[in-house]
């Protein structure tokens, strides 16, 4: 028998021996009493949570829009410069 088998046997024995440990009587009542003290989630909490997401999404959209606007402006400038260079004035 390997060392690991030995360890597993020992842990198995302790698992079986501790199987009948139960929570004390009235444990569920105590949990429910603690739960009763948790304030209810109100509409304001929900709106507040979604509001934070909305603000974050709007900020990201604004950042993306600024980036695109700058990029487009650079393209337009390049286009204007190349067009200007290409103008031929006939005598």
């Amino acid at each position: 028998m390997s060392h690991d088998d030995d360890l597993d046997l020992e842990l198995g024995r302790l698992r079986d021996a501790t199987a009948d440990l139960l929570p004390s009587a009235g444990f569920a009542d105590r949990v429910m009493a603690a739960v009763a003290e948790v304030p209810e989630v109100t509409l304001i909490d929900v709106v507040g949570r979604w509001g934070r997401w909305a603000v974050a999404a709007a900020a990201m959209a604004a950042a993306a829009a600024s980036f695109i606007a700058v990029d487009v402006e650079q393209d337009v400038n390049a286009e204007v410069i190349s067009t200007f260079d290409a103008v031929e004035v006939s005598p």
Binding site: L14, T18, D20, L21, L22, S24, A25
Partner: peptide, 11 residues
Amino acid sequence: GAGSAEARMAL
């Protein structure tokens, strides 16, 4: 806690 003396000993 609840549980037999043997269980508590094993724990």
